[in-house]
Design a protein around this nucleic acid. Structure first.
Lengths: 290, 290
DNA sequence: TACTTCGTGCAACAAATGTTTCATGGTCGA
DNA sequence: TCGACCATGAAACATTTGTTGCACGAAGTA
């Protein structure tokens, strides 16, 4: 047998898991889920908690290439050793090349995005949520990469207001929806540089129809922010990388949904429970187990 | 003897340290300095490393008020248990009502999400990107709220690899796509608790087909992470609010796309330029001004 | 059906663990 | 100087640990 390129013992375990006998899969899952206890408590203890035979642990270890449980546990222990957590403090940002250039790219990206989130002003989000709460109907627009954010917002809002939320362009040409905007409704437009014509058209349609316009954008001077009742700003360019970041826009969308939900009070909660019950009944989800 | 108000076993140790016999002080200091090894390795091992007698550890434990070394180690183990992640230690979450309750909700949410991002491990993302780079074809799966992340990933990857990236279920029933998985291809599955059957099915299909499986999930024990070649973890539950947060998953997706792009080198860059040129020609974008 | 293989639980095994006892050597006070 | 006391290391102890051999039963094959 050939060693398949060492990495983390946990990933080795996961890789081998599906090809293992049933009982070994169970204990394997148990170990993966409780790896801290696996390193600290005894094999027999674990077996008792997992409801399995102690021997299964030894067999599991051997099945994935270790000489025994002791060796597997030693590997898990080393993998968990806190010394290698590498705090973000004094990380050298000098090297831009070499084997770890990509790792540095990712870390920088994540840090930059993390730094951008707290800079998002909360007050406008709350006000926009109030506007959504009052709206008879909610339209959501987003194109290109912003489409994903629009769809998430659509999904979350629909969980507790199914009949009143609609994604522009979901059920036909955009123009059909644009023509349906009415006073008393709210239109959310998401976009950043470079701005698409379609999103600007949607914003203008909302404005002309007298609907409440909520713009989620990277700049107050974005074309679809013109005439908007609420402008929610995020930093799209804050992160390095080849493409603007949507993390901020997504965070805004999620907060917007959360506040709107909390404004909905008991009624919204009931609706959400109904929706979840329906999904559970359709057995959409994998049942949880110990 | 009077118990001096329990706190952490380590602090108990430090307090009692000066009044202990010389050899016990040495051992005590060793334990305090290497508490991780103290919880994982055996008493005799520690004694060998510390250059002390095994019995000294038992005596130390009794000297601080424990019944024996086992009990001390158990206390240390519990004190180290990672489940108590709770990073926002003493943050007052008391005020949940009042006029600014919603603003506080948003601020907390954003802060929590910002804190979660730097905790995402970068190395696995880079490795996964390499797998994507090598893949002849890339499939992307995500259901319910994860659909939005899946679509963003699909969009960004398609910018520079248009013919080789496909969203599962985009052009017909899912099962059709699941059956098309092949060795040499890569399948990305995105999901978190509660897990959908559909995503688990996709993961299993990928495994069976011998395709490289990349799971973006909230837990290493997620069902679709079983057998995965790469598991990218984010914290879905870290943020307050009525729904798990997708910010982490989105950040991972963006980083994944960015690194894959950078691995693509000149060819990828050319492709991206072509795509952008085409979009510009179709006058998708609003022309920039001042 | 008969045979084989494989997964699984049980129980016995040797090794290792934490604990205790004992002998030694040192320190302090009378 | 003597004796009481305590710290300390080595060895013996009972217990617990991880392991392995064995038997039973299910699944697959000829």
């Amino acid at each position: 047998m050939v060693e398949p390129a060492k990495s983390s013992p946990l990933s080795e375990l996961r890789i081998a898991l599906p090809s293992l006998p049933m009982r070994l899969q169970e204990v394997g899952r148990f170990v993966a889920a409780n790896d801290y206890d696996a390193t600290t408590r005894s094999m027999r203890d674990l077996a008792a908690v997992a409801g399995a035979d102690p021997a299964a642990f030894t067999r599991l270890a051997k099945a994935i290439g270790y000489s025994g449980w002791d060796e597997l546990r030693a590997a898990l222990t080393e993998a968990r050793r806190p010394s290698q957590i590498a705090p973000f403090s004094g990380r050298a940002k000098s090297r831009r090349h070499g084997p770890n250039a990509d790792v540095a790219l990712v870390t920088d990206k994540l840090e930059a995005e993390a730094a951008g989130l707290p800079r998002i002003p909360a007050q406008p989000i709350v006000e926009a949520a109030r506007a959504l709460h009052d709206a008879k109907r909610i339209w959501i627009t987003g194109y290109r990469s912003c489409r994903s954010v629009a769809e998430l917002l659509n999904y979350e809002l629909r969980l507790f207001r199914p009949e009143q939320v609609q994604l522009v362009g979901a059920s036909g040409p955009d123009d059909l929806d644009l023509g349906a905007f009415q006073p008393g409704e709210a239109v959310i437009v998401i976009g950043f540089l470079p701005y698409t014509h379609a999103s600007v058209r949607a914003a203008q349609a909302a404005y002309r129809a007298g609907a409440a316009l909520i713009a989620i954008a990277d700049s107050p001077s974005a074309p679809m922010a013109e005439g908007a009742d609420h402008v929610l700003l995020f930093e799209a360019a804050s992160s390095p990388g080849f493409f603007p970041s949507l993390t901020g826009a997504l965070a805004i969308a999620q907060s917007l949904a959360a506040v709107t939900f909390s404004l909905g009070g008991t009624a919204a909660k009931k609706r959400l429970e109904n929706t979840e019950a329906r999904l559970a009944a359709a057995s959409t989800y994998v049942s949880e187990k110990g």
